[in-house]
Every structure is written in structure tokens, then in C-alpha cells.
């Protein structure tokens, strides 16, 4: 089931890198063009069909909640990070208007210097530099639109009790902007939620405590099977390896085998392989072929042309000598 990751104010895919690395394929939403939370939510729904698992950070979590309101049948799981449901507070609109003007006058670097320090608890020079660069990738106009969306935000507290899908709430314990108490309020309203508090992290928990957050999300989201050191043949590999597997599959026919044997390079040119894939075939580099989307059941037909034991192909992938592979991996008794 597709996972959609929604960044917060002035954020982009950078904040989701650790999560992306852990859970594999996911879509990162773009909130740079819309002027309201509802419009943002609708564009996320339009961008990705089918049932969704939605993860939102800060303003992105408000968008995620709005998606659940708009499409309760499609949003199957929600993870809401460092966020809140409170409506506009007295004086908030004026404060936000001032900061929009500040960004317009002084630019994004100045805005980053003013805005970021209060948001981050675990401040390291590297993290602050990365976050500053992220803010610099935005523009005062994007900032103004997103602030406009936040000022006009829907009253989520009214519909939270109707969100019945499983919800994971996560907050950095030292989040000063969206404190733990706001998440407890949400927990009280949501019928099917749990709250996780990450110690030692502030509002930017996704990058301040990347491992803990990725662990929590990997555990919460319903993911396709994922086993270490095990390339399962799903869409990414299927896309990458299609031409390679098609070439290998063609060797099931005797006439094609003969043509391949006669001139391997010319035969490979008949197919749409990348240069690296061609080289891997010429080199009989089984591990590289698999890494580039080759599926064993197809590339075995390459091994049938000039026979190589499948255990040697296994050993090459395991990075072991053949004999060592037979003994250690397969538990084969070798005499003499």
C-alpha cells in the first residue's frame, strides 16, 4: 500500500531521507503551490490513487488529517508527527503576517536563522546547515502561501473523533513548538491512536532522531515484505531489469542460444540493456546482474549457455569462494 510522506512548513524530501532509506518506496508530497490545507490534501489525494498510508510532519500532519477527512475510505493508516489541532490563537495571524514580511524583506537565509533555532533541540552544525539549505531551497512566495494555508487551517478537533483508522502520534519530548500536551489532546479525541514520545528530540524529530522515528514508522506501516540481503522482485527491480530478463529469457530458444554464442555483444545489442547490464552479462557477473534487476530464474538461462553450477552463482552473490559457500551456507559435507 502506497506510503505518502508529507513535509511541514518550508520542508522538503530532506526530512524524510532516513525514513525513505528504511521503508523503501514512498511518495513525498509537494506543498509548495497550494494556498490552503484542504487544497494541499486534495492534491496529495489526486497525485496518488488507491489506498494510502499517510505520514505527515508538523503542517504536513494537518494535511494528513485533512486527507483522512476528505477520503476516509482511502486513508488506511495515519502517522502524525510533531503537530497539533488547535485553531488559530489570538494574535497568531498578526505574528505570522510579520514573519511573512520578514522573509519578503530579508530572504530565506535570514528567515532560516531566525526560525530554525527554536525548532531544533539536538542542534549540531551539520544538521543546522542541512536544515538551512532546505529552507533556502524555498522562496518567500512559497512561505507566504504556506502561512496563508496555516492561518486558514480547518478545525481538525471537530472531525478527529471520526478518524477510525489506526493512528500513530509521535512527538519529540523537547518539541517547544508543538509540545507533547498537544499530542495528548489528539490522543483523547482519536478512537484508534497511540502516542510515542521520543526523548531528546525537538520539533524536527524526523531528522533529530532519524533512527527511532524510522523504527517506529517501519513497525507501524503495513509494508511489503522486506528482508535484509534479499532482493524481492517487486516493481523497482522489475522496471530496472526488464530488458535484461527479456534478453536472458530469449535464450530459452535454441536459435537464440546459437546467435548469442556466435557474437554475444551483437546479440545483447538487440535488447535495450544499459551499458552496465551488458558488461555484467559479458563478464558473467551474477551479483551485478541481480543488483541491476536480473532475476535468477531468467539469468539462469545465461548460465545454461556455458554451464555454471547454480551454487557458483550463489557463491558469487554471497561474496564467498565456491567451496566455502557449499560448506558454510549449504552445510554440504565435503570429503577429502
Amino acid at each position: 500500500m502506497t506510503v505518502v510522506l508529507i513535509p511541514g512548513l518550508l520542508c522538503d524530501a530532506y526530512v524524510w531521507q532516513p525514513v525513505l532509506a528504511r521503508i523503501g518506496a514512498a511518495k513525498v508530497a509537494d506543498l509548495t503551490t497550494q494556498r490552503s490545507i484542504t487544497e494541499m490534501a486534495q492534491s496529495c489525494l489526486d497525485a496518488t490513487p488507491g489506498p494510502l498510508q499517510v505520514v505527515g510532519h508538523s503542517m504536513g500532519a494537518r494535511v494528513a488529517m485533512e486527507m483522512a477527512r476528505l477520503a476516509p475510505d482511502r486513508v488506511r493508516r495515519l502517522a502524525l508527527l510533531d503537530t497539533g489541532i488547535h485553531p488559530l490563537r489570538p494574535g497568531e495571524a498578526e505574528k505570522r503576517a510579520e514573519i511573512v514580511n520578514f522573509a519578503n524583506e530579508h530572504g530565506m537565509t535570514a528567515l532560516a536563522q531566525r526560525w530554525l533555532p527554536g525548532m531544533v533541540h539536538r542542534q549540531t552544525p551539520e544538521l543546522m546547515a542541512d536544515l538551512t539549505q532546505m529552507v533556502e531551497r524555498m522562496t518567500p512566495a512559497i512561505h507566504a502561501r504556506q502561512i496563508e494555508a496555516l492561518i486558514g487551517r480547518p478545525v481538525a478537533a471537530e472531525y478527529l473523533p471520526q478518524i477510525t483508522c489506526p493512528v500513530l502520534l509521535v512527538v519529540g519530548e523537547q518539541d517547544q513548538w508543538s509540545p507533547v500536551s498537544q499530542h495528548r489532546d489528539m490522543l483523547d479525541l482519536l478512537p484508534n491512536a497511540r502516542l510515542e514520545i521520543i526523548p531528546g528530540a525537538g520539533h524536527f524529530a524526523p531528522v533529530e532522531a532519524p533512527d527511532q522515528l524510522a523504527d517506529l514508522l517501519a513497525d507501524f506501516l503495513t509494508l511489503a515484505p522486506e528482508v535484509p540481503e534479499t532482493p524481492l522482485y517487486r516493481r523497482d527491480l522489475a522496471d530496472q531489469g526488464y530488458a535484461l530478463n527479456k534478453m536472458a529469457n530469449s535464450l530459452g530458444r535454441p536459435d537464440n542460444r546459437a546467435a548469442f554464442k556466435a557474437d554475444e555483444a551483437a546479440y545483447l545489442d538487440r535488447f535495450d540493456l544499459s551499458a552496465e547490464q551488458k558488461q555484467a552479462v559479458l563478464d558473467r557477473d551474477w551479483a551485478r546482474m541481480v543488483a541491476m534487476g536480473g532475476n535468477l530464474f531468467y539469468i539462469l538461462k545465461i548460465s545454461a549457455v556455458d554451464p555454471v553450477p547454480i551454487t557458483a552463482i550463489g557463491a558469487a552473490q554471497a561474496g564467498m569462494e565456491h567451496l566455502e559457500f557449499l560448506q558454510k551456507r549449504l552445510g554440504k559435507q565435503i570429503n577429502g
Partner: peptide, 13 residues
């Protein structure tokens, strides 16, 4: 059995 990836050769008797 496992034929693919660096976990190739996995057997769980």
C-alpha cells in the same frame, strides 16, 4: 532456499 542477493544459499534445516 534462497537464490538471490547476498543471503543466497540460506537454508533452514
Amino acid at each position: 532456499h534462497q537464490l538471490q542477493g547476498s543471503r543466497a544459499g540460506f537454508i533452514n534445516q
